[in-house]
Amino acid sequence: MQGELNNQLKIEKTTSPRVKPDYDKLGFGIHLTDHMFTMDFESGKGWHDAKIVPYGPIPMDPAAKVFHYGQTIFEGMKAYTGPDGSIRLFRPEKNFERFNRSCRRMNIPEVDAAFVLEALKELVRIDREWVPAEPGMSLYIRPFVIATEPQLGATPSLSYKMMIILSPVGAYYEEGLNPVRIHVETRDVRAVVGGVGEAKTAGNYAASMQAQENAHAAGYSQVLWLDGVHRRYVEEVGSMNVFFRIGDKVVTPALSGSILQGITRDSVIHLLRDLDIEVEERPITIDELCGYAEDGTLLEAFGTGTAAVISPIGEIGWNGRSYSIGGGQTGEWTQRLYDELTSLQRGDSEDRFGWTQTIVGAEAARG
């Protein structure tokens, strides 16, 4: 693969490095690194012209179809610096599997996942000085595709651009792993089976912002989404998958075609089963959930996703009532899962699942 990469990937390094930010004030997705990956697609020619170039603006025609018909998909993943200085990725092959699933749903040509992953590794190696070494920090990786054909007909684009950009990000929780209050959305709909809810496409996130702002205005941090048909079944929390500890087992909504197949979700399920904790993937109604909260059976709840890893939930607001979970405290299992996952991602503990890929060894990182 390395020989193929050298033949297909052009590299142009910057002569004007960007000023690195103060890592104490990183925020999320604010600062971008020195380089980016780009690759183009044309009908009849396929994907071509793969290159790593200095980060910067790209020319876009105002008639490009991404602006008018929303043909675009993306991924979110991270690179981590381990205690020995090595840099690793966490289950990146799963991200590119999902990347191509999203492409298929949005009628975008699939990419060669193996080639793109190797190109990503090379991009991170080039910008390795941007990968934070501080605990809780990481390098956020955003691969995406946009439709670029300059034509206003409502048909699939005949040309596309894929890019990967990188951003050093700070710890998601500045003051620790604190539970959030979530509001059950009863008016807006996030997705329906047969729609694009299981694809990582921009429209899903744009459609969720009104409900998110309304929840914030009511004093909540996140939205708990219900299904779009019956308006009873729990689906996701914000842009994360959601889990509930009910007694001595964990329940998470089954993947129904309208729920994103989260990489962190899958990792949490593996971890729980490795710990001999029963996991049920099944439909769960909001009535059932709040009933468990009332009788004290709902002991913990949390969301999972790349950005936060684990986000504990301490309270649910539904139909004018509030339901406390675990006394509003971070639960034992929630904390353990967060510790286990972040330890695996950084390389602080043995990777017994074979989930991480080292892309810059300790000696190379020090050099």
Rank of each mutant, 00 (worst) to 15 (best):
V124A: 01
L275T: 10
K161W: 02
D34H: 01
A307W: 12
C290G: 06
Q8M: 11
E110K: 07
E118N: 06
Y69D: 05
A191V: 02
D112Y: 02
Y220V: 06
L5K: 04
S208K: 05
N319G: 12
R346K: 08
L255K: 09
L139V: 00
V111G: 08
T186L: 03
D339G: 05
I313W: 10
E122V: 03
S16E: 09
V242S: 02
A147S: 12
T14H: 03
G76S: 08
I58M: 15
A133I: 06
S102L: 07
E185R: 01
Y172F: 14
E12V: 06
V223N: 13
L152F: 11
S258T: 05
K121D: 12
Q2H: 13
Y220W: 10
S86G: 08
L341D: 04
H48C: 08
R265Q: 08
W318A: 13
D295Q: 06
V131I: 01
D348G: 08
T330H: 11
G317N: 15
G367A: 15
G238T: 05
G3A: 13
E294I: 08
A362L: 03
A154I: 15
D248A: 05
V111I: 07
I259L: 10
W225P: 11
T358Y: 00
E280N: 11
V237A: 15
Y205P: 06
A64D: 10
G317L: 14
Q329W: 15
I146C: 06
T334K: 09
I146W: 10
D188G: 02
M36D: 05
I164V: 06
Q329C: 11
R128N: 00
H35G: 01
H216L: 14
E288W: 10
A64S: 15
L299M: 11
G238R: 04
Y205T: 07
K13P: 03
L117T: 08
V180P: 03
R18A: 12
G176W: 04
E122A: 10
K10S: 03
L166N: 00
F244G: 04
Q261D: 14
Q71E: 09
